[in-house]
Design a protein around this nucleic acid. Structure first.
Lengths: 255, 255
DNA sequence: GAGTGGTCTAGACCACGGT
DNA sequence: CCGTGGTCTAGACCACTCT
């Protein structure tokens, strides 16, 4: 890695630094390799540690680096494509998907979710927690809210809260005709519990995918899935296994 | 806004601060209102300015605040739903969409794009730039790469580079049968030119939406659209005009 | 215990938008 | 011009992981 002096340009140092580091990552490092520690790197580039960290943060945000406290900074593999399927496709849990049902309880939905469900906020719902693992890494944590009306068979059942009950709810759900779904994606930061499940620190950037499932002329379920933004590229359609970046920046300039 | 002392908990100060501020935003501020400046806020909470800024950064990332140099920090409106349509729907530029064609030139595609186009990297392509405005705000900047094979009528035409030529390319494209498309969404940081167009600083978080358009048995065009992550919620399907948050955190806890 | 990244401080100066 | 947020510094201490 070069130790080129930073010129005195109006461009912020951390920005320039990020560019230099990104080029070094492409040319001189391979996936999984560990970088020198932050103090050494800062000294090598003649900047304060905070400035260096600003550059590293951006690179981590872009999925180029992975930093772990007590361990070090490593070169991250290209983001993995995570398939979200096509709309109007299927219920959660259909087929051989990568989700692991973790738990299920009855609870009141948050008001925002109740509104999406077109449900009385005082009405309890089934809350299924699932997590998704891809290539040995946790990539998403989901809260799936299911109206009791959608799975009437379960109302009287006292299955013990836990994975078994979660699977029972999903099974019942799949007996309904799925009439459609709609989705939205936005940037958020991980809540403490999601962060833990995703093996990140609280506040880590995540992609929040909200899906509404329609059946019987109403909203039967709402899923709020939290994907690691640093390691995941959400794919729709059949482009899941196509490599887009290949080391270089995803937005390499044209001209 | 309260000036409650921060307790000495193992929880980071900036995290706690963020929570306190978020609650204050919900209860004591209205959209568009300007907050006290950073130095005053830091003093009021008894923390260093850098610590306060860490909290503000997170809130801005979550779309709760808007900060502008030389102006101040204001309370942001809820994110706007930006419709990306359903897959297998239509070509870019079809119908009364919100895109404004800005420019068009012939150029070599970056290697990553050439791979998506299944095209020889030495083959020139049409590059259309468009920008999208919603509710008076710029929300996205797009680079649309169109293979010359897809719009053969244009090969000999010497229309002046500019909006007119861009529209001509789009018009030609729409004469093809669209056989399908696929999409991916990932977090990125704005390049300098995109940042300028989006009225943000370079490095601002954006959602990079990559779309491949298929026609005549091959990839006819690739779009790389950069959406402001702070102000946009990308929607698929017909949930575009549904308010999800309503002030409270999008991930309000259930239990 | 040694070494890592994460948090925090108290300053300084710069770039920008309005006046 | 002033006030704002943006960048940067040179330290300090903490939380975590590994040996």
């Amino acid at each position: 890695m070069g130790t080129t002096q930073l010129e005195s340009v109006p461009e912020p140092k951390y920005w320039h630094l990020k560019t230099v580091l990104a080029e070094a990552l492409d040319s001189e490092f391979s996936v999984g390799e560990i970088l020198p520690n932050e103090r050494d790197l800062a000294a090598r580039f003649g900047v304060a540690r905070a400035t260096l960290r600003q550059a590293l943060e951006q690179l981590e945000l872009e999925g180029r680096l992975q930093r772990r406290r007590g361990v070090g900074t490593t070169v991250a593999p290209p983001r993995m494509g995570v398939d979200l399927g096509s709309p109007r496709q299927n219920w959660p849990g259909t087929g051989d998907d990568a989700w692991r049902a973790a738990d299920c309880m009855q609870t009141l939905a948050p008001v925002a979710v109740a509104r999406l469900l077109e449900e009385d906020p005082a009405q309890t719902v089934h809350l299924v927690r699932r997590s998704r693992v891809s290539r040995g890494q946790p990539v998403a944590a989901e809260l799936l809210y299911v109206t009791e009306a959608a799975v009437p068979e379960l109302s009287g059942i006292d299955a013990p809260a836990g994975p078994a009950r979660a699977r029972a709810v999903l099974r019942e759900l799949q007996r309904l005709d799925l009439e459609g779904e709609d989705r939205s994606v936005e940037l958020a930061s991980a809540r403490a519990d999601d962060a833990k499940e995703l093996d990140r620190l609280p506040g880590a950037p995540v992609l929040l995918v909200t899906t509404r499932y329609f059946a019987q002329g109403r909203t039967a379920a709402v899923s709020m899935a939290t994907y690691r933004a640093d390691t995941c590229r959400l794919t729709f359609g059949d482009s899941g296994d196509v490599e887009i970046h290949d080391g270089t920046s995803p937005q390499a300039q044209a001209s």
